[in-house]
């Protein structure tokens, strides 16, 4: 947990990340509040707040007496949200730092392309791996 953002947001984001990368597929059961509190060593009320946020957003649903599960369509909705936030969250600081170092936009674009090729290849490889059920 970092010091900057509210812990409940970080708890919610970690679960969102697991939904996005497929570690928690739709219909999968999410750890209980007490399990999350113990794992992250945080106050259970904070863990509850993080989970409640995801339930309120319709990403998780509660089954009384059983637990919390990933809702249908959660992954695609999260992807849409994250794509929207991507420019603000990642591209803007990248461009600002590049400007500070005197890196022009063409040079920056070339750098991104050089980094992107191996990263995307690795991503594709991982996805086919997963699909093959290994």
């Amino acid at each position: 947990m970092d010091d900057e953002r509210p812990i409940f947001l970080q708890v919610a984001e970690l679960i969102e990340n697991q939904i996005i990368d497929g570690a928690m597929p739709e219909g999968a059961q999410v750890p209980s509040i007490n399990e999350l509190a113990a794992f992250h060593r945080i106050n259970p009320a904070t863990a509850l707040k993080g989970i409640t946020r995801l339930v309120d957003a319709g990403l998780l649903f509660k089954q009384r007496g059983i637990g919390m599960f990933v809702a249908d369509g959660a992954r695609s909705r999260l992807l849409d949200q994250r794509r929207e936030a991507f420019s603000e969250q990642y591209v803007r600081p990248l461009v600002a730092e590049a400007a500070k170092l005197g890196i022009g936009s063409d040079e920056l674009a070339a750098m991104i392309r050089r980094q992107a090729v191996p990263a995307l290849a690795a991503q594709r490889w991982r996805t086919t791996d997963k699909e093959a059920g290994r």
């Binding site: 947990m1 812990i7 007490n34 509190a37 992250h40 945080i42 106050n43 259970p44």
Partner: peptide, 29 residues
Amino acid sequence: DRLLADYAEHPRTIVLSTHLIDEVADLLE
């Protein structure tokens, strides 16, 4: 860890006085 686990199972009111603030910060409400 034991405090958190037992508190989660048996919620009760806890006051924790300490100067090791970094260690307990995330436990506090």
